[in-house]
Amino acid sequence: MTLFSKIIAGEIPSFKIAENDLFYAFLDIYPSAPGHTLVVPKIETDRIFDLPEDYLSAYLPFCKSIAAAIKMAFPCDRVNILTLGFEVPHAHIHLVPMNGMADADILKNKKQGDMAELSAMRDAIVKFL
């Protein structure tokens, strides 16, 4: 069972943003920017393009409303998608608020989030969903 599966199952606490029958979205606890959110499928698949077609076709529509809420909560030029997938062997999308190319280096920009700040970030995003 991956770390993300444990988060989805509630075995590890998370700052949940949204959930449906296929996906679970929660804040990255090492955000590269305020509002940095992870969106994971509820099935364990290491590589995003190995997901079944129904997951692939539903992934971006699920992310779209979350990205809009992130942009409202944390004004930025855009919310971009990154699909790195090396840190946890469970397909996932990073939704990251960005204002320029320097913001794309999420590994350089990551810092451990303060629990109170993460809670406030979650509340700010959720109110726009």
Rank of each mutant, 00 (worst) to 15 (best):
P89G: 00
S14I: 10
G113I: 10
L51F: 00
E19M: 07
F74A: 06
A116L: 13
D54L: 14
L84V: 13
M72T: 14
N109A: 13
C76K: 03
F49H: 11
P61A: 04
I66S: 02
T45S: 11
I81Y: 11
G10S: 06
D77F: 13
K110V: 15
Y59D: 02
I17E: 04
F74I: 05
I29T: 13
A33Q: 08
R47Y: 11
S65R: 12
A33M: 08
I48K: 05
S32Q: 08
A91Y: 02
A33N: 09
K108M: 14
H90G: 00
I125W: 03
E19Y: 05
A116K: 14
K108D: 14
H94N: 00
Y55F: 09
P97E: 05
F23V: 04
V39G: 01
P31Q: 08
C63W: 03
F15M: 05
I43Q: 01
V126P: 03
L3E: 10
Y59Q: 03
Y59I: 01
L82V: 07
I125R: 08
A58M: 03
L51W: 01
I93C: 02
M121K: 13
A120C: 10
K16P: 04
Q112I: 15
F62I: 00
P31G: 09
F15A: 06
H36Q: 03
C76V: 04
M1E: 15
C63H: 02
I17L: 07
E87K: 11
A33D: 09
L82W: 11
L95F: 01
L95Y: 02
F15Y: 08
S14E: 03
A69H: 00
S14A: 10
S14H: 09
Y30T: 14
V126Y: 10
Y24G: 08
A18H: 07
L107P: 11
V79F: 09
H92R: 01
H90C: 00
G10L: 06
L129T: 10
A69R: 02
K108W: 15
D103M: 03
D21H: 07
L51P: 01
M72C: 14
P34K: 05
P97H: 04
A91F: 02
P75W: 02
C63E: 07
F15N: 05
K64M: 12
Y30Q: 14
A116M: 12
K111I: 14
A104L: 13
K6C: 10
P52A: 06
V79P: 08
I7P: 07
R122V: 07
K71N: 08
E44S: 10
I48W: 07
A69G: 02
P89T: 01
S14M: 09
N20Y: 05
V40T: 01
